[in-house]
């Protein structure tokens, strides 16, 4: 840990309008995560985990409260401002991989750099794909890759822009046991190697226990915030 706060959430609230009236899915959630730390957000279905992840990563706007990411308050930024922060400081791994189906594995990994207008990132992308064990499948399209392989491409993509914080949403949710285990090793391995902050949303308590801190959500509020065993 470096002692710097990378993510600071204060009194974060999210309410959706519904036919039956406003529905509050997050209610005044507050916490802070230090740079380089690993943290898991756990809770039963409907407890607000994914909503919280979306708000922390700047994918959505809060109804109340603030989110400071990498030193910047993102609630006041417009969509393009948040997109810039995501591109510069954030990496994502999703449960359902979210690769662009029309791009090869290598091209998928290169997208964040190309969006930034950076050329010459191909060596880094190739190295990352080598690192996740896909050095021989650079030119394969997602449809030709297994679920585990797709998730490894997604992981390489998440690290290619050297993010300061990595958000993982149920990264092993769609993978079988052995593949999931290998995936977890890769996530934590890369995280350690690159000193990235890791925020993990999961149902899997065993996986959560590998992080330094576990935040439990229940009915949209923080039920407990405890240090893990890792």
């Amino acid at each position: 840990m470096t002692g710097e706060t990378i993510l600071k959430v204060e009194r974060l609230t999210k309410t959706y309008p519904t036919a039956a009236g406003p529905l509050t899915v997050l209610h005044e959630v507050s916490f802070a995560i230090m740079a380089g730390a690993t943290c898991a957000i756990v809770g039963p279905s409907g407890s607000g985990k994914t909503t919280l992840l979306g708000l922390c990563a700047g994918l959505d706007r809060p109804s109340g409260g603030t989110v400071a990411l990498a030193g910047r308050e993102i609630g006041g930024l417009d969509e393009d401002g948040r997109a810039r922060i995501r591109n510069e400081a954030v990496g994502f791994v999703f449960q359902n991989f979210q690769l662009v189906p029309t791009l090869t594995a290598l091209e998928n990994v290169l997208v964040p750099l190309e969006l930034r207008g950076e050329g010459g990132g191909e060596g880094e992308a190739r190295a990352l794909l080598e690192r996740v064990g896909l050095g021989a499948r650079l030119d394969h399209y997602p449809v030709k890759l297994s679920g585990g392989e797709q998730q490894r491409v997604a992981l390489a993509r998440a690290f290619v822009n050297r993010p300061r914080i990595l958000f993982c949403d149920e990264p092993t949710g769609n993978l079988d046991g052995d593949t999931a285990h290998a995936m977890v090793e890769l996530i934590f391995g890369l995280n350690r190697e690159r000193g990235t902050t890791l925020v993990l949303v999961t149902h899997d308590l065993e996986l959560a226990r590998r992080t330094q801190r576990i935040i439990r959500l229940r009915h949209g509020a923080v039920a407990s915030d405890e240090l893990g065993t890792a």
Binding site: E79, A83, R84, E88, F92, L115
Partner: peptide, 8 residues
């Protein structure tokens, strides 16, 4: 996905 990865 592109938006997530930072596309404006």
């Amino acid at each position: 996905v592109l938006r997530c990865l930072g596309a404006s």
